[in-house]
Design a protein around this nucleic acid. Sequence first.
DNA 1: AAATACCCTTAATATAGTTTAAGGGTGTTA
DNA 2: TAACACCCTTAAACTATATTAAGGGTATTT
Lengths: 214, 214
Amino acid sequence: MYCQSSLVRIFEPATILVLPVTINKIFANFDNYLPLNEQEREALASRVIERTIRRRQFILQEGDICKHYTFVAEGCFKIYHVDKKGVEHNLQFVAENDWIMELDSFYADKPSRVYIEAIEPSVILQIKKEDLFYLFTNIPKFDRNFRVIVENRYVELENRILQAISSTAEERYLSFLDHYPQLSQRLPGTQIASYLGITPEFLSKIRKDISKKH
Amino acid sequence: MYCQSSLVRIFEPATILVLPVTINKIFANFDNYLPLNEQEREALASRVIERTIRRRQFILQEGDICKHYTFVAEGCFKIYHVDKKGVEHNLQFVAENDWIMELDSFYADKPSRVYIEAIEPSVILQIKKEDLFYLFTNIPKFDRNFRVIVENRYVELENRILQAISSTAEERYLSFLDHYPQLSQRLPGTQIASYLGITPEFLSKIRKDISKKH
DNA sequence: AAATACCCTTAATATAGTTTAAGGGTGTTA
DNA sequence: TAACACCCTTAAACTATATTAAGGGTATTT
């Protein structure tokens, strides 16, 4: 496989590909779906931009139009909405080896209603819309893989809705701990409260109540 | 286009296709995405099963494995979960010209955690998993179209999460009225309350409060 | 070292939503 | 016509969660 791609490169116009090490994380991620062969990996790698993001830096703000599909190689982001009263509500956390997409804005060219902000120093890989469309059109496997990525995300969201409408705040918190054990260590309680749809004060009470039970 | 497909039919083994009238609703639905040509329509039509469903009939029960992707041609369904206390929680309503999919069960062959039940007498068109996979593999447009169907659904769900964690029950109700004006007429309040994550009694109070304001 | 920003906790009071109970309306079945 | 199932409404008592206010801890900036 390696040989084949080397040969191809010889006959192609000299495109110098500096493959960032982090790109391997994307390949490993695709291995969970339909693994990419060497040629497909190059097609992807040559269309990916690596960026280093500081803590509290935004990669999307309300009103912006989302131009990229983003893979988180390192770090963690929050996707949140600010309501009329100015209160932040966390929709999702996205940590390393997962995808960030603001689909509504990305596909419909609509101004985003959410912010996407780094909670930790992060490294991301971004694909521009036209590059993604190129991959969709020319390599059907990408169409397939990105369908599956969205499907998996859909299942997660469905579970979250279920929790939101049928569980108490304490149950939701316990389920959060269960589902995101790493994140619960890394995130401040204020962020978790915003994700659970409760106040930090009430989260504090829940934590006390839980610790009393032991 | 029509000619071409007619010719093809002559040389194929005689498959008599009795196209149900309702299939046109599926074609019209695909016109919102990437429209199907005549051949693709036939490929789809020959793999679709039409079923008439009575009120209160289930097309999926908890524990079943979801074997079909379902298009609602007429009528209305609710997708709901039953919690440990036996309380029903409506995740979604799906009415005519929309798709029902229980993705987690369908793709992972996992027992479903939800019920899908007709609220009204309904007509559906179903595609079996292997037939859908056939379409995905052989006609890339289906891969694309079903990606877009899921993406649209994802955006809807994201909006619902946002509402669930950041709005009061009254705001959620008003937004439901706004978003599903037809459904709000057709559904009993008990079902709407279950969708909003509140009790029927509280919905009743909300309705009174709203009418007072006018 | 002092000042500041951020986070966590506690507690009192207020509001949003549930539970229970009772009664009335309508449509369907015996 | 009676009986029943289903839905809607009201109200009182109760519980879950929000709001406000205050104080303390720790890390970062000045």
